[in-house]
Amino acid sequence: MAVSFEPQRGAMGQVSQAGVPSRPPLACRPSPPLGGRSALTSAFAKFFPAALAFALLLLAWELYARLGGIAPTVLPAPSRVLAQAWENRTALAENTLPTIRATLAGFACSLIAAFVLSALVDFLAPLRRALFPLLIASQTLPLVAIAPLVVLWFGFGLLPKILLVALVTFFPMMVALVEGYAATSAEISQMLAAMGAGRWRIFWLARLPSALPYFFAGLRISITYAVVGAIFAEYAGAAKGLGIYMLSAKNNFRPDLVLAAVAVSSALTLALFGLAVLVQRFAMPWERAGRDRKVEPSGRRP
């Protein structure tokens, strides 16, 4: 029997009438304005407490440093850090760029490796049993000890930085992806198999998209490790970079410049984090749709 579809009247026609939405579907309706007033107020309400706490902390620090009679070579006030950062902006910028480069290159390598290996592991269960203990062991290595060794082996160039960034970011990404694949709904897999999809097809159509939320959760975590990893690598030895800048500032008794570099690295991490959130929004538009209210066509069911 071939399934055919001649439109027919009768009880069925009446039923499909009931199902026709009497207002335009969500997808056609203008979405709530992102930059609108309500969005602005809600964003303000969301971030205001954090901003206030941060400002109060800075204020307390400033007052303590100014009125406590503490030497600026020990604890510089935030205002001094800011002023010195501006004065040394060229040097800071020169040292920030290599850090950004190392972070992004290392993170990109880590992402590619995590994707390829996680896919391999998903297809070959024995490989997973062979690799996971090794990967977990790699996470027990103290970075303080490993960083100088990697620099010793691979020199002062970009390579040791890439390796160290990859070392700290690869594992969370790998675990996130492997867990994400495993989170695929069994019913979807079974249905695809019944449709005649093979192993690779099911991976591409179901397992990979199912892993996306896990992937982005891992991405948000590991991108914050990435900058720290790069700075650690530079700290152990580099020609230029925020890490080596911090080291030499410390050796010159300039905690204000150390803190300026710290502020830059924090800003960098936050920017990357924000970028990850933004990418997730674009990559998973259905996630926001799910949080909107459900469509009930004019109260009629089903």
Partner: peptide
Amino acid sequence: AEFGLAGFERAWPAELS
């Protein structure tokens, strides 16, 4: 239309009842 889904072609499943 016959399945009572007219107008929802471009909706996400999470938007359906």
